[in-house]
Simulated scan of single mutants.
Amino acid sequence: MTRSAMPPVSALTLARGRATHLRNLVIGLTRQTRPPSELVIGVMQEDLYDDLPATSFPVRQVRVRGRELPLARARNRVAEAAHGEVLAFLDVDCIPAPKLIADYARMVGPSQGLSMGEVLYLPAGAAAEGWTYDRFAELGVRHCDRQGPPEGDRRRCEDYRCFWSLNFALHRRDWDASGGFDTRFVGYGGEDTDFGRSLSERGIPIWWVRGARVYHQYHPHCMPPIHHIPSIIRNAELFAQKWGHRTMEHWLHAFRMMGLIEPTDAGLRILRAPDAEDFALCRQQEDMPYAASGRVMRLLQDRARAQAGLPPDDASPKVRQARLDRGQREMLTPAGRAPFAAE
């Protein structure tokens, strides 16, 4: 496909606060080898952003109201407002590499499915004023729990649960066929896995692609996200009502290991609010480009053995992970239903 024949690409993002992150995202879009046809921002707060960098392309802001994060509704809203043939969704804390728009314009076509680009995580301070892509390439690291780029241009993602809403694109025709995000999911967690499941059910393929890279800006975060337990539980139970089993089981198992929740015949129940010790365990530190639930769950395994008076676990990483996997599977199935068999 020649440059002139490439379809117009609408860049889409959602924002609440995060003004510095949003400015860096816009700066990244101004440095593209092929600019987007527009940027549409789903503003999940009362005030619009009034200090954005100058661009050669239109920037439009659309308000999406809701006290809890209306992520599903906001993604639908920016897609509806967009004019481009290709819809490129970027989280607000992502800075697009110079070829992201060109890569998606080249790789995404009608009825070809959804493409997920590369992500590298930056340490604290890397995206300070005056940042450069050379510095990002030097400092960026891949997430240990996430799939890396394929050896070729693309590889089919065979498990919808791996859909990653941080950086993805699809053609308008596939977006319309997907039905969009389910707006019953409100707050943090689950709406993206539900969207991936909907794609799978409708026969719309998901692809890992090489290129279309973003650099994730550092910000303090907890993983597992103990600051979002109520919405995660609510959305996990909604997912179960819809599909027959819960999702986000790794987070749910971590919450149970921490004594924060328990499964009951009536559903998941919150036992207590996270305390300072819980936040200290889960909070991302400045020397960590990203936070990972697996790290916390392995620490919890070690803590449980110590509290039981058992010696340190000398099992192989594979065996330890198998134990965690069993615990996670237990959180998938609500009471009274047959055990869920992973696809």
Rank of each mutant, 00 (worst) to 15 (best):
C222G: 00
Q112Y: 00
L100N: 08
V59L: 15
Q307T: 14
R298P: 11
L268A: 05
D145E: 10
G327N: 09
C222S: 07
L29F: 08
Y218I: 07
R329N: 07
D93F: 03
R34V: 02
I101E: 11
G203R: 01
M331A: 06
V26S: 08
R184S: 00
R246F: 03
G17S: 05
A5M: 07
R155W: 01
F163S: 03
P98K: 09
R34D: 01
D275G: 14
V78P: 08
A308T: 09
I95V: 15
R295L: 05
G109F: 07
R246T: 02
Q285A: 11
P8A: 12
E262R: 15
G113P: 07
Q321N: 15
A54N: 04
A341E: 14
E129W: 04
G309S: 12
E277G: 03
A54P: 01
W208E: 02
G267M: 10
Q217R: 09
P98V: 01
S200M: 13
M223Y: 08
R65P: 10
R256H: 11
R326K: 13
P334C: 04
R326D: 10
R155H: 04
D153P: 06
Q147S: 04
F340I: 02
R173C: 14
A292K: 00
R295P: 05
H228G: 02
P96V: 12
D302V: 01
C162D: 12
Y121K: 04
A212N: 09
T20E: 11
A102D: 15
T20I: 09
F255E: 04
T33C: 11
D314V: 13
G130K: 07
M297H: 10
D159E: 03
P230H: 10
P312T: 00
T33Q: 14
L170S: 00
W164N: 15
S293G: 03
C94M: 09
H171Y: 13
G84W: 04
H227D: 14
A273Y: 10
R323D: 06
R283I: 02
L122F: 14
H21Q: 15
R63I: 01
Q301R: 11
K318S: 11
F163L: 12
G148F: 02
P289D: 09
M297Q: 15
R272S: 05
S115I: 07
R303H: 06
V62G: 02
R337L: 03
Q284N: 01
H221Y: 10
S37C: 15
Y215Q: 02
Q112M: 06
